[in-house]
């Protein structure tokens, strides 16, 4: 048990990462920050629509899409996996609808049935391909990604020219966050209305079903973009926890979005240090920190309310 938790020292945990391997540290933190931000922003809408676990479902069920895209095209190119994931994501949503609309299975069970089956299909395809020796997809990678490898990938090059000095995946994540922020800013009121009051939105002539599928498509895009850095299971944490954290602190969606970004930064930095200390996976450590931050505001909020109440009672008595 004692070997498990290495000795804690300020020196090695907090200073060394920034003194040696500064580049690596920066890129790991940046990856974590961007992943958490991207997931957190879209996660708000999942939470508002009470679809938190559909995020979980899609993040699992893109796996067969990825494997099928590889098996068909023979490449691990970005466009192929994006396309595979997008198709898989939309198939998931459509299958869930099909099952709960055409039978008496309730939506929760339908979600569970669809994504576990698709995930099983993905793993089965993967292991069959692996047995044939055509690919080697690491099970660990599916479970918790490889943030460290992502951070040491070479920068993106276009015909020998390097536009920005940052690892390719980080640049892609940056683009993703940019697209997301732009999309949310542009469609802010439509997304808000279709999430908050679909009935009214429909009455106003908005195509709520199309917005639903659009959001799910965006979700599939986010999930596949973060797949290589955090795997298939941890995205659900990043989809749900940052919005929950922000919901404890503000009642307005726009301000909650800002809190999400703050939370993402804090979780990324703290998670990196935790990973250095405990010598464990960076992605997992970031989620642990993210959850811990939520627990902090949750319990803190309860305590503050209790204290305030006590003060009021005492004031009333006097």
């Amino acid at each position: 048990m004692t070997d498990l938790i290495p000795e804690f020292s300020w020196e090695t945990v907090f200073l060394t990462p920034w003194r040696e391997d500064v580049d690596l540290t920066i890129w790991i933190v940046a990856t974590g920050f961007l992943v958490t931000t991207a997931c957190g922003l879209i996660g708000h809408y999942l939470l508002l629509r009470r679809l938190a676990l559909v995020g979980d479902a899609i993040s699992h069920s893109i796996l067969p899409g990825l494997v099928a895209a590889f098996a068909i095209t023979g490449t691990t190119a970005l466009w192929a996996s994006m396309l595979g994931a997008l198709v898989a994501g939309l198939v998931t949503v459509a299958l869930i609808e099909l099952i709960h609309r055409h039978s008496r299975i309730k939506p929760d069970a339908a979600i569970c049935i669809v994504f576990t089956t698709l995930f099983a299909l993905g793993v089965a395809m993967m292991s069959v391909l692996e047995a044939q020796g055509s690919i080697h997809l690491d099970a660990d990678c599916v479970l918790y990604g490889e943030m460290t490898w992502v951070a040491i990938e070479p920068p993106l090059q276009i015909g020998g020219w390097t536009p920005v000095e940052m690892p390719g995946p980080v640049l892609r994540l940056l683009l993703l966050v940019g697209v997301l922020v732009a999309g949310i800013a542009f469609f802010y009121k439509e997304l808000l209305l279709t999430s908050f009051d679909p009935g009214l939105a429909r009455a106003l002539g908005m195509r709520t079903q199309a917005w639903h599928y659009g959001l799910m498509g965006g979700l599939a895009l986010v999930v596949v973009s973060v797949f290589e850095s955090v795997g298939a299971i941890l995205p659900v944490a990043m989809l749900i926890v940052p919005p929950m954290f922000a919901a404890e602190l503000s009642d307005r969606l726009s301000i909650r979005m800002v809190w999400t970004v703050v939370h993402a930064a804090a979780a990324a930095v703290l998670g990196m240090h935790l990973a250095v200390w405990l010598n464990c996976t960076a992605a997992g450590a970031m989620v642990v920190c993210s959850s811990a931050l939520f627990v902090l505001v949750w319990v803190g909020g309860l305590a503050v309310r209790r204290l305030r109440l006590r003060r009021v009672m005492r004031g009333g008595g006097a």
């Binding site: 938790i5 918790y144 941890l234 749900i240 926890v241 405990l278 464990c280 989620v287």
Partner: peptide, 20 residues
């Protein structure tokens, strides 16, 4: 959301322990 949080938080702790 509550279910998702429990899933996420516990699983990530597990993952960390696992890699340790």
């Amino acid at each position: 959301a509550a279910l998702g949080f429990v899933l996420a938080a516990f699983f990530s702790i597990g993952i960390c322990l696992f890699t340790m």
